[in-house]
Design a protein around this nucleic acid. Structure first.
Length: 419
RNA sequence: GUGGGUGUGGCGAAGUGGUCAACGCACCGGAUUGUGACUCCGGCAUUCGUGGGUUCAAGUCCCAUCACUCACCCCA
């Protein structure tokens, strides 16, 4: 039985690694210009971190974590997202030490145990940023604007920015109560999972796609009417900042992010016409998160982007960029002596930064030159018995179709001379 | 966890009960025994995911199983 890759994982093959490099470079470069420094945290953490950070009522913690006991009987979890780890590292390394704000970014694989489908995998890659240490509205706008700029840079169009405020521990419960109250006499219209949500997380009823639930929640109270004296002006200011920098957004009172830690601003960037997984970027403010995993409360806001989803979208819009290095020299040596010389030559070329190849399969001459053509080599160097005797090589310009004989020593000296 | 779709050579893809399982790409060999496009000629699946069953006869029908895929839940 042939061994296959685990479901929901992907091999990134040489033909497609180019676009990954492109995206990674773009993200790194933009991060630097916006003042974010890279942070790399472990791919696994103590399970407790995610339980406390992400929240045990969330689906991520409830049913999607790759959790196992290690040999020391510790419960370990493959990271399902990046924010909790970054906050942990922030605290553990006392990065608050200089009293200033920290702008961090990360990139790498995340793991969630769920049924894979288009744009969703068990191992997937996220790029994300965390802006720690400020609760000023300008921070929210700054982070959101950055996310929008990044996606602009990829060339993707038809993206929508949705924003909402989910309030704080002071006003969120009041709103929650109001919602539960509202749905009391509409229970018969709700689907079975929404009935559960009514108990566990009534806010999520709002973005249920079931028609009947949509209908039932049509006149439901909205969070914005319940924002407290702190959250209300905060939300307004964030919107003002966004407008001031010409960021167009859609206020979506039904936007409820799935993770427990969000407070105030929540946002998503959605690809309208993308299959089921249209959310390319999701994020928001999490003023209580750092406090919940450490002994120090630090406000923060951040977002995460699904790199596979971005790449998938770019492909659909024919925006993918592959840059493959072209072969400079392909060396054909006929006969074992010529092959030894070819091996010496190819290394000399490589040492001089040329992309050069020799034939590894000892096939016929015709076969080799055909192969050189297939590899799109710019030049082919031919060494046969005649050349060996005369101490020369034939350099063939594949595009022009012309070739010339050159003295081997001169050719080699020229190469060395270029160093 | 729930539901739908698919499974034929390296890849794409015909074939819906009855001769040797089309075709295209790729690959290999030859025409051109040291020269790459193109063209021409030839080669390339004892076998149709796997196991069982129905039948005189199965890639084609039935059952089971596995794999892949899409969607729901939820999310990036």
């Amino acid at each position: 039985m042939e061994i296959k890759k685990p479901k929901g994982t992907n091999d990134i093959l040489p033909e497609e690694v180019g676009k990954w490099h492109y995206l990674e470079n773009l993200l790194r470069e933009k991060s630097e210009t916006y003042g974010y420094k890279e942070i790399r945290t472990p791919m696994f953490e103590h399970t407790e971190l995610f339980v406390r950070g992400v929240g045990d009522t969330t689906d991520i913690v409830g049913k999607e974590m790759y959790t196992f006991m290690d040999k020391g009987d510790r419960s370990i979890t493959l990271r399902p997202e990046g924010t909790a780890s970054v906050c942990r590292a922030f605290l553990e390394n006392k990065m608050y030490g200089d009293g200033s704000i920290k702008k961090l970014y990360y990139m790498g694989p995340m793991f969630r145990y769920e049924r894979p489908q288009k744009g969703r995998y068990k191992q997937f890659n996220q790029y994300g940023v965390e802006f720690l240490g400020s609760k000023e509205p300008v921070t929210d706008a700054d982070v959101i604007k950055f996310a929008v700029s990044l996606l602009d840079e990829t060339g993707l169009k038809d993206l929508e920015l949705h924003i909402n405020s989910v309030g704080c521990p002071k006003c969120k419960p009041v709103y929650r109560e109001a919602l539960v109250e509202y749905f009391q006499d509409k229970k018969d219209q709700l689907c079975s999972s929404c009935l559960e949500r009514l108990e566990k997380n009534p806010l999520r009823i709002l973005d249920c796609k079931n028609e009947s639930c949509k209908e039932a929640s049509k006149d439901a109270p909205v969070m914005s009417d319940y924002l407290c004296e702190e959250c209300d002006p905060h939300y307004k200011e964030v919107k003002e900042y966004l407008s001031a920098s010409n960021v167009s957004f859609i206020e979506n009172p039904r936007l409820v992010r799935g993770l427990d830690y969000y407070t105030n601003t929540a946002f998503e960037i959605i690809a309208k016409d993308f299959a089921a997984q249209g959310t390319v970027c999701g994020g928001g403010r999490y003023n209580g998160l750092v406090g919940s995993i450490g002994d120090r409360d630090v406000p923060g806001i951040g977002f995460a982007m699904g790199m596979e989803r971005i790449l998938l979208l770019m492909e659909e819009k024919n925006l993918s960029v592959d840059s493959e290095r072209t072969l400079d020299y392909y060396i054909i040596g006929m006969g074992s002596e010529a092959e030894k010389l070819s091996f010496k030559l190819v290394n000399l070329l490589r040492e001089n930064s040329y992309y050069a190849e020799i034939d590894y399969q000892s096939k016929s001459f015709k076969n080799r030159i055909k192969y050189a053509d297939k590899l799109k080599a710019k030049y082919v160097i031919i060494i046969g018995e005649n050349e060996l005797e005369k101490n020369t090589v034939i350099i063939k310009d594949m595009e022009a179709g012309i070739q010339e004989e050159q003295d081997l020593t001169i050719f080699m000296n020229n190469l060395k001379g270029e160093q």
